[in-house]
Design a protein around this nucleic acid. Structure first.
Lengths: 174, 174
DNA sequence: CTCACATTTGAATGCCTTTCAAAACACTGG
DNA sequence: CCAGTGTTTTGAAAGGCATTCAAATGTGAG
């Protein structure tokens, strides 16, 4: 079900991802989907969780690898950044942001997923720096968000490589 | 007209900002608004431009002031950041991001407004650092975006003051 | 005054989400 | 095997939305 929704999102974009259209594809009714997901936001949130879970699995592999900490950080960035302009995962994030204020379930999900990434960053940074790691992790996550939006919207003059350079620039010189 | 739309946005939020509702308030028809703004996105874009123009006026005052460069940078941040969680200007930005990929007019506006801020940053940074200022300005703008989203969505543990500290941390030690 | 052009209206279209009653289904204790 | 209870699923209905369109109204130049 989520797979079909994901395919729809990839093929036709956010605008065409409706409960009605999804119902048509799955040969069920929009009413049922509304019942099942609670609401359209529910669907979007489930989708986001679903794709994020996948990614977090990959993140754990990266973190557990024997590479140098800086290389693991680089790979974290590769996972975090949109893979290309219009990447569906980031489309979902950006779609949900304006609704976070009014929907407690979204708030919670955002906080939860943010924490995963921030903790991972903090662990890596603990290996790479001496000082207090929490503020640096917060700063770096904000930078990652900003860079991701720029990559998502295909900002001219920004490539994933350059984005990685920007992240590296936050690391203290050793 | 934009003023009324803005008020509506402030009072009732993004969800209730519709051409129909605006038509009711202005005692005109939704059809006319659609004709006038071209589309709903047209309205959102005009609104964003409108509020951004206001801000850019204030930015120019700040930039021209006699304060030290770092203080002018701080004031730029104050202007740039959302004034409070749910700040309408940032709601508009975030609402428009997912649509930037498909609407050339949005792309252009985004590029244009980004450039204003990035140039302002570059000018200030030229006073504060020696090296190549362009990449640093790009990096700082991405950080400002990320921090703004965090402030917009009321991320716990982040205040405007802390956000400013994060920005300052990008400045090279002198 | 007229004609061409722009604006405004209000209704129609076709979408959407959500709700709801009724039907179908699944399961449990007898 | 059956009855009864609770959950899913359906299909239609309600209500709202942006957009389109033909008709009506305004407007300004020659």
């Amino acid at each position: 079900m989520l797979q079909e929704a994901w395919d729809l999102l990839v093929e036709r974009g956010l605008a065409d991802l409706s409960l009605s259209e999804l119902g048509r594809r799955l040969e069920t009714s929009a009413g049922h989907l509304s019942y099942y997901f609670g609401s359209k936001n529910g669907l979007l949130l489930e989708l986001l969780r679903w794709s994020e879970d996948e990614l977090i699995g990959q993140l754990e592999v990266v973190l557990a690898s024997q590479q140098p900490a800086e290389e693991r950080l680089r790979q974290l960035c590769v996972l975090f950044f949109p893979r290309h302009p219009g990447d569906p995962r980031w489309l979902l994030w950006v779609e949900l942001w304006p609704r976070v204020m009014h929907e407690p379930s979204l708030r919670e999900a955002q906080r939860e997923l943010d924490t995963v990434w921030r903790d991972a960053l903090a662990d890596l940074l603990a290996e790479l720096t001496d000082g207090d790691v929490e503020p640096l992790a917060q700063r770096m996550l904000a930078l990652l968000d900003g860079l991701s939006v720029a990559l998502l919207t295909d900002q001219p003059g920004l490539t994933p490589e350059k984005a990685w350079e920007h992240v590296r620039a936050l690391l203290p010189v050793r």
